[in-house]
């Protein structure tokens, strides 16, 4: 038995993977402009503009910004030029977008091809009711979790996409104030593949800060979405309040986020085919997408 164990261990040992650094000549492609903007009817335009770089170049965000770009958002015939805000490092406007309208973004800069994208802000879907209860956290029984039941009426006969996040109003060791909390859907079919590795160190296999889902399983119904998140073991006298945000997003943002996360998730997977990040920027890279949201404050005590 003992010698057999040794042979087995030896077998496993010699079968361990090896790795070699190799020099590969990856040709550089022409640099392109990158525009990222996720806007709503309630906020001003906020467009981040970068340039792309060689795949193996050092990743330095600040060096890639293009502050001398010309950024314009068109609403039909009206063109709104955006100016660069050195404090927030984005191109901003004073105007706000309107739900249901189409907007076209164009970005140009010397030495780069002009990029463009057009989108429409989806209609908001209102949260009807929120209920919650506290239970022991299954994977970490020394902590608690709060189960939220969020009810809303899904518009029928069209494919709707949502992004759900929960914020804790109070500041504590798990959550900073007014920032999204790690949440996980109780129905595992709403968990995306890319959730697992990201939060392994929390021992939470299916959590995300912003749950993206669509209505294929409940099209047109009065649906109650159940999610759970950490809750600090605080005494019963401390006030406790959460903010529930249900964003109605377009397919372009859903695809962008899913493919973006999948690429991050799969880049070390030897068998996975490469995931191309969804891109709705003509001649460039990035995302230009709008959303509407329904926000509900949920006071526990």
């Amino acid at each position: 038995m003992r010698s057999a164990s040794i042979i087995f261990v030896l077998f496993v040992f010699v079968s361990c993977g090896l790795q070699t650094q190799v020099e590969l000549d990856i040709p550089a492609e022409q640099q392109k402009l990158v525009a990222n903007c996720f806007f709503s009817a309630d906020s001003v335009w906020d467009v981040h503009v970068w340039k792309s770089k060689h795949a193996l170049d050092a990743k330095n965000v600040e060096a890639d910004r293009v502050p001398n770009a010309t950024v314009v958002v068109k609403d039909g015939a009206t063109a709104n030029p955006l100016s660069y805000d050195g404090q927030y490092l984005t191109f901003r406007s004073k105007e706000k977008a309107t739900t249901g309208k189409s907007y076209t973004l164009t970005v140009s800069a010397p030495g780069y091809e002009t990029i463009a994208s057009t989108v429409t802000i989806p209609e908001a879907v209102e949260i009807v009711e929120v209920k919650s209860e506290r239970t022991l956290f299954p994977e970490m029984p020394e902590y608690y979790q709060r189960i939220f039941e969020i009810r809303f009426k899904d518009p029928a006969h069209r494919l709707n996409y949502y992004a759900l996040s929960i914020q804790n109003v109070s500041n504590n060791s798990f959550n900073r104030e007014n920032t999204p909390m790690l949440t996980r859907p109780l129905n595992p079919t709403f968990a995306e593949d890319y959730y697992s590795e990201w939060f392994q160190h929390y021992k939470v296999s299916t959590a995300e800060y912003n749950l993206l889902f669509n209505d294929r399983l409940f099209d047109g119904s009065d649906y109650t979405f159940k999610v759970a998140c950490f809750e600090q073991n605080i005494d019963e006298a401390t006030p406790l309040e959460y903010i529930i945000i249900l964003k109605s997003i377009g397919e372009e943002y859903y695809q962008y986020r899913v493919t973006y996360n999948l690429q991050l998730e799969s880049k070390d997977d030897p068998f996975a085919q490469p995931v191309q990040i969804y891109n709705n920027i003509q001649n460039g890279y990035g995302i230009f997408a709008g959303y509407s949201q329904s926000v509900v404050k949920h006071k526990v005590r």
Binding site: I26, A28, H48, K51, S52, K53, H54, A55, V61
Partner: peptide, 9 residues
């Protein structure tokens, strides 16, 4: 293998 990289949102 990728030929370009860019900042994601």
């Amino acid at each position: 293998l990728p030929t370009a990289s860019y900042s994601g949102y």
